[in-house]
Nucleic acid binder design. Structure first.
Length: 994
RNA sequence: GGGCCCGUAGCUCAGCCUGGUGGAGCGCCCGGCUGAUAACCGGGAGGUCGGGGGUUCGAAUCCCCCCGGGCCCA
């Protein structure tokens, strides 16, 4: 068990779980978040603001990896801004009411319908909702904190909080007073399972592809023998409520003879229809405009089955009417019209004074009025209706259609369009302003702006009433006597006007329903409209209510409009919209300046994650297995935020290996610095004289920091994550550390060793800070174990640090570019070595660098050690001479020419062989389990190979020094227990005598 | 039916805006290192850049059409 009494240590491998456990404890014991908040907010009054508004997660389930992705993106932005010195607003928030919560409770209690809730008791039910929300908020806070998302959770806003509800009410009251909130009878989408109306943005979230009947049927005209209107529908059950047929007034219709019958359809459609229903022989006998059919009566196709229709004798009931909306794209041009079940049907019915016949309840079951269909669930009636039509010879054709049909976004039940009295908010008066305001928002990606614009343009009035229990009650009271209405903007206000103020205890149902008001007009008793409002309104007023909940109303002018929000793309219809709507309706301004859209997280095969499929990855579970840091940087870097990603745990492990390299590099640095007792207390001096590779890595660091800044500020956090990882792996570890190894191994205290340490310290330290927004845990740990260990004046936490910068006097672009080219050359030398089979350990004799002018000779001479060290070349010449270099290999490098000698001569061969022998002796030392600094008595090398012998003789001292042996002996006969080796095809036996 | 996103190596993705001989990581094969070592490094094989047409001296990149995967709207 790691505990705080243990100091952070870089011994062993990077283990995210151990590291994060230590860091979590460190943060909590030292109140690091509070200190960061204090630095960034309380004590930072004059800094530029960065105002974030949290899109509140709904507290009705667990956090999955999709949520985790969004929350990681939020945290990266916030941590970065804090380090940059912004005054960061980071209040947390929770969505706590509405259908999602109710359904979760119903599931828990095993409820099937609203009746179960009524029987159980609304008060008890609502308490269950509260408890469920408490539970899930607990989970979300825990999971968010484990993820490392730093928000001000202690001051989280909650949509169920009394003062929050006051604000929601106050918004509704404003809408009422402006005349924008109204009640109306309309056709609305209804969920028969939840027995409530839904809004169009809820509907938009629930489209699903399903199969429905595609039915062509005949409707006999009353006064014309054997003449039928041919209509088409995909909802046969609505024929029960049919009251009219609608045709287009200006389009041409045709009468066709089919056998001994006459069929009427639109001219533009009849061929397609007849083809589909399989009628090959027919004859067009007459053509006329649709409007000539107006008023013609027909016999209801289900007259016998639904006796109520016998009494429907209005002028346009069971008659043909006309309307412009009739489509010539699909169907027959004759539209079966049921005013109770379609928006257009309803409007047309109203226009012609046709009754709204609605023989069905909101729960989807037919009533007595439906005749033989009574008691059937609406979709179940389909086969019965079809069968009856078939029996009566009115069925023309039955096919099947696959189309998108709306379903309840929460419980998945197919919706029913249904005429009903509901409450709406009129959005037309502010549509234009919303569009204008949208143009001022910076959307990422850009195309999201157009998408949002389209959505606003097509938006209809917002149906906000829900016949449910756990939500913000509609604060409108109606007089039972005279119908007069009032709306209230706070619970206090209600209390002031209540006849029974002692009952005014809670905004919520059922308590609020008991409150009666005296009608100011007639003195009668007013009762509350029994609705709660759409849950999307709750979070939609967060821009104001989140502050008012804490009485911070005066902060509003400072915080509004917010600088940045980010949620998943589906919020175009959800939160992005409701937030914009309420804000423009209230303040005529967009509540946010920039929006970052997030794509979906799919499973590793690209399938949507869903509970029923069983492929959901839960965030907390995953982090407890793999750690938060690898998870975070994976989610943030894999793709652009708005792209969908396929989540694959194996890939998280891949990216974790790049963090290993950061860990190992830091360990490398610390090991040697401590060995040499180097500390950064003379950093400035140590940085005064830099080697070319030092300047190179510092310049690379500078470029990387710029890239990250640009990425995060430009809503491309994935590019920042890739940039920092690439810097650590490719530049720092692979190249820079390789280059400085010889300097680090110098025993004495030399300036070039000190400058290597100083540069390494500077760069590593900056890298640790720069990765902190992405991987806050490992950054903290390394900061404690490395930075703070070497520098006692360092801050208490890496997250209290400023964003790193590079002093401009350390920037040397020219040297950078020389070194960069030589590194490229060096890599080509390595490729060449691999091709001709010369190991990197074997030195190459020489290389020549040809530069463009005499002025470049000196700089390249200085930089040439990079090539010498990285590619292991003994001698490097820099010249402007373009004379040919016989026998040298030419490399292709931009701007310069490099020639390298890859021929082996005896000198090199002997040196190489000596190193080969050393390596094998080292392996044997290790196998003997000798301590690193143990000195052995003797090494015996037995071989008959002349070159090997020569190599040992010539490099005797070198070998002895490397392997820590007192003597070395060369013989021809292998001694006892000697180990046999093959060295470049030559045989030798080696024995180490302890 | 309309709008949008995506299609590049076995896998995951850069490159496309501002055309100039196709990249990275992982995986695979081969090798190196053995003083960051249950770590690290190098090399190699592998692609008609979804298909077709056009513009151009030259197209993964710009334009048009089509196919496939996905999202949104109707």
């Amino acid at each position: 068990m790691v505990s705080l009494s243990e100091k952070p240590s870089l011994k062993g491998r990077y283990n995210p779980l151990k590291v994060e456990k230590w860091v979590l404890e460190y943060w909590s014991k030292n109140n690091i978040y509070r200190k960061v908040k204090e630095k960034s907010w309380e004590k930072n009054r004059n800094a530029p603001l960065f105002r974030f508004l949290e899109g509140p997660p709904t507290a009705n389930g667990f956090m999955h990896v999709g949520h985790a992705r969004g929350r990681t993106l939020k945290d990266i932005q916030l941590r970065y801004r804090r380090m940059k010195g912004y005054r960061v607003w980071d209040q947390a928030g929770w969505d706590t009411q509405g259908l999602p919560v109710e359904l979760e409770v119903e599931k828990k209690l095993g409820f099937k319908s609203k009746k179960d809730i009524e029987n159980y008791g609304v008060e008890k039910f609502v308490k269950q909702c509260q408890e469920l929300v408490d539970y899930y908020i607990g989970h979300w806070r825990k999971a968010s904190e484990r993820l490392g998302l730093w928000l001000d959770y202690d001051h989280a806003y909650q949509t169920r909080h009394p003062k929050y509800l006051d604000t929601t009410w106050s918004f509704l009251k404003t809408m009422w007073e402006k005349g924008l909130l109204y009640e109306d009878l309309r056709v609305v989408p209804v969920c028969p399972r939840c027995e409530t109306a839904l809004s169009s943005h809820e509907v938009a979230q629930g489209y699903k592809k399903i199969k429905d009947p595609s039915l062509y049927f005949k409707v006999p005209l009353r006064d014309e023998e054997k003449t039928y209107m041919i209509a088409w529908t995909t909802t046969p059950w609505t024929i029960i409520a049919n009251e009219a047929l609608t045709v287009h007034p200006e389009e041409t219709y045709v009468k066709i003879r089919v056998g001994d019958e006459y069929w009427i359809m639109a001219e533009k459609l009849y061929e397609k229809v007849l083809d589909e229903v399989g009628v090959k022989e027919y004859e067009v006998v007459e053509k006329f405009k649709g409007k000539t059919l107006l008023g013609k009566k027909y016999v209801h196709p289900l007259l016998e089955e639904v006796p109520a229709h016998r009494e429907h004798n209005g002028k346009y009931e069971h008659a043909i009417v006309v309307a412009e909306w009739v489509s010539m794209e699909e169907g027959t041009g004759v539209v079966h019209t049921a005013p109770a079940h379609g928006a257009e049907d309803f409007e047309t019915g109203k226009k012609y004074g046709i009754r709204i016949f609605r023989p069905i309840r909101k729960n989807g079951y037919f009533t007595e009025e439906a005749g033989k269909y009574r008691g059937l669930w609406f979709k179940e009636a389909n086969p019965h209706v079809i069968e009856d039509l078939r029996r009566k010879g009115l069925l023309v054709h039955l096919g099947e259609i696959e189309h998108d049909y709306p379903h309840c976004w929460r419980c998945d039940t197919p919706l029913m369009y249904y005429a009903d009295r509901q409450w709406f908010i009129n959005i037309d008066p502010i549509k234009k302003k919303m569009l204008e305001e949208n143009d001022r928002v910076r959307w990422s990606p850009e195309w999201a702006s157009k998408r949002f614009r389209d959505w606003i343009e097509n938006a209809r009035d917002w149906c906000i009433s829900r016949e449910r229990y756990w939500g913000t009650p509609l604060p409108v009271w109606t007089c039972k006597k005279c119908g007069y209405r009032v709306a209230f903007g706070s619970l206090e206000e209600v209390k002031k006007h209540a006849l029974n103020p002692e009952e005014v205890v809670d905004h919520h149902r059922p308590w609020i329903d008991r409150v009666k008001i005296k009608c100011p007009r007639c003195g009668g008793i007013m009762e509350r409209e029994p609705f709660v409002v759409d849950v999307w309104l709750d979070s939609g007023v967060a821009h104001t209510a989140s502050l008012n909940q804490y009485g911070w109303n005066n902060l509003f002018t400072q915080l509004f409009p917010y600088d940045w929000i980010t949620e998943a793309v589906d919020q175009t219809r959800g939160w992005f919209y409701t937030l914009m709507f309420t804000s423009v309706a209230w303040y005529l301004r967009s509540p946010y300046k920039a929006v970052l859209n997030q794509g979906l997280v799919l499973d590793k095969y690209g399938k949507k994650m869903s509970k029923s499929r069983g492929n959901v990855v839960w965030a907390l579970e995953f982090m407890e297995k793999y750690g938060a840091d690898p998870f975070r940087i994976y989610l943030a870097s894999k793709a652009a935020p708005w792209d969908n990603i396929n989540f694959d745990p194996d890939e998280v492990m891949d990216i974790k290996r790049q963090l290993d390299i950061l860990w190992n590099s830091t360990n490398f640095a610390l090991t040697y610095m401590e060995l040499d007792k180097w500390t950064p207390n003379r950093l400035e001096e140590d940085l005064r004289v830099l080697e070319p590779e030092d300047k190179w890595i510092i310049y690379e660091l500078y470029k990387t920091l710029k890239a990250i800044e640009e990425a995060i500020e430009g809503d491309q956090p994935h590019k920042g994550g890739r940039a920092i990882l690439e810097f650590i792996v490719e530049k720092l570890s692979h190249r820079y550390i390789t280059l400085i190894r010889p300097r680090v191994w110098i025993e004495e205290d030399k300036p070039e060793k000190r400058s290597a340490y100083a540069t390494l310290y500077l760069v590593l330290n900056a890298a640790i800070k720069a990765i902190a927004p992405y991987t806050p845990y490992i950054a903290e740990y390394l900061y404690q174990a490395f930075t703070r260990k070497l520098d006692p004046n360092a801050k208490e936490s890496v997250h209290l640090e400023e964003w790193p910068t590079v002093p401009s006097k350390l920037l040397d672009e020219e040297t950078w570019s020389h070194v960069d080219k030589l590194l490229e050359a060096a890599e080509q030398v390595l490729t060449l070595r691999a091709k001709v089979g010369i190991k990197r350990r074997w030195p190459l004799k020489r290389a020549v660098i040809v530069v463009d002018g005499p002025g470049l000779i000196e700089p390249y001479k200085k930089a040439s050690k990079v090539l010498a060290v990285y590619a292991n070349i003994k001698e490097i010449e820099v010249t402007t001479s373009t004379s040919s270099f016989e026998g040298l290999e030419e490399l292709e490098v931009p701007d310069i020419k490099v020639y390298v000698d890859v021929k082996l001569d005896e000198e090199i061969l002997l040196e190489g062989l000596a190193r080969e022998i050393v390596r094998r002796i080292q392996v044997m030392r290790r196998d003997l389990n000798l301590p690193l600094d143990a000195v052995v008595e003797k090494v015996i090398v037995a071989t008959r190979d002349e070159l090997l012998k020569k190599a040992v003789e010539k490099h005797r001292d070198y070998i002895l020094g490397e392997v820590r042996s007192k003597t070395i002996e060369v013989v021809e006969e292998p001694p006892d227990k000697a180990r046999k080796w093959k060295i470049e095809g030559r045989e030798a036996w080696i024995k180490v005598v302890v």
